[in-house]
Simulated scan of single mutants.
Amino acid sequence: MRQIDYYLSTINPWCYLAGDRLERIAARHGAQITYRPLDLMQLFDRTGGTRPQNRHPARIDYRNQELPRWAEHLGVPLRLDVPMTNMAPSSYAVIAAQEAGGDVGGLVQGFLRARFADGRDIAEDGVIREVLPAHGFDPALADTGLFVGAETYARNLERAVEAGVFGAPFYHVLDTGQKFWGQDRLDFLERHLATL
């Protein structure tokens, strides 16, 4: 079975716009996904990127035009008025859910929708406890998964740097070493999997 490491951030609008396309592609090609949430801001710092708030105004302006264009193209709601929040708590929940087994992709999308469609603060314990059971997970994972989540979250950052990851969403096909950055590269990922 093909293995895909999916590096993501639960506060990244491009991960939200990816929707469930990765999961559908993986199902069509018999691939297994490992979800690797990480601290995207530290990844930028470590790999020569620039945090969004520190980018040149021209880049910020273009991003603010491009995100709504993609949302309209994909037919999904998108709120950009959401303040920055701590991505660690929801990431820990995703990591704990992956350990427990179940629809991790649905959970990731649940957190992203809560943020970018509903404008909720996914760092809040109450929000995390609502999103978990909505996707078939015990809300207690918000507590019991903290230790493992924190350790794995830090390891995911190190693994990403070692693998040459520099942004999110980022898809790494372990069998071939091929890397795809951005939700707009999912078609290329599927074409690659079709050749294997």
Rank of each mutant, 00 (worst) to 15 (best):
residue 1 M to E: 07
residue 3 Q to C: 02
residue 3 Q to P: 02
residue 4 I to W: 00
residue 5 D to E: 14
residue 8 L to H: 01
residue 13 P to G: 04
residue 16 Y to F: 15
residue 18 A to G: 15
residue 19 G to T: 10
residue 22 L to M: 12
residue 26 A to N: 06
residue 29 H to P: 03
residue 30 G to N: 09
residue 30 G to A: 10
residue 31 A to Y: 07
residue 32 Q to F: 05
residue 35 Y to R: 01
residue 35 Y to T: 03
residue 35 Y to W: 13
residue 38 L to G: 00
residue 38 L to A: 02
residue 42 Q to L: 15
residue 43 L to N: 04
residue 43 L to A: 02
residue 46 R to S: 12
residue 46 R to Q: 12
residue 49 G to Q: 11
residue 51 R to N: 05
residue 52 P to E: 04
residue 52 P to A: 08
residue 53 Q to L: 10
residue 54 N to R: 15
residue 59 R to A: 10
residue 59 R to S: 12
residue 59 R to D: 05
residue 59 R to K: 15
residue 61 D to W: 07
residue 63 R to C: 00
residue 64 N to Q: 14
residue 65 Q to C: 08
residue 69 R to E: 07
residue 69 R to A: 10
residue 69 R to V: 01
residue 69 R to T: 13
residue 70 W to T: 09
residue 73 H to F: 15
residue 80 L to G: 12
residue 82 V to D: 00
residue 83 P to D: 07
residue 83 P to K: 13
residue 83 P to V: 14
residue 84 M to K: 12
residue 86 N to V: 08
residue 90 S to Q: 01
residue 90 S to P: 03
residue 92 Y to W: 11
residue 94 V to S: 02
residue 94 V to D: 00
residue 97 A to N: 06
residue 99 E to F: 02
residue 100 A to P: 03
residue 102 G to R: 12
residue 102 G to A: 13
residue 105 G to W: 02
residue 107 L to A: 04
residue 108 V to N: 02
residue 108 V to T: 06
residue 108 V to P: 02
residue 108 V to L: 13
residue 110 G to H: 03
residue 110 G to C: 09
residue 115 R to S: 03
residue 116 F to C: 04
residue 119 G to N: 11
residue 123 A to D: 07
residue 126 G to D: 13
residue 127 V to T: 06
residue 128 I to S: 00
residue 131 V to F: 05
residue 133 P to C: 12
residue 137 F to T: 04
residue 142 A to N: 11
residue 145 G to P: 02
residue 145 G to K: 01
residue 147 F to D: 05
residue 147 F to T: 15
residue 151 E to F: 11
residue 152 T to K: 02
residue 155 R to T: 13
residue 156 N to R: 11
residue 156 N to L: 11
residue 157 L to D: 01
residue 163 A to T: 09
residue 163 A to P: 03
residue 167 G to N: 04
residue 173 V to W: 03
residue 173 V to P: 01
residue 175 D to T: 11
residue 176 T to Q: 06
residue 176 T to C: 12
residue 177 G to H: 13
residue 177 G to S: 11
residue 180 F to K: 00
residue 181 W to N: 00
residue 185 R to I: 06
residue 189 L to N: 00
residue 191 R to Y: 09
residue 191 R to S: 10
residue 194 A to R: 08
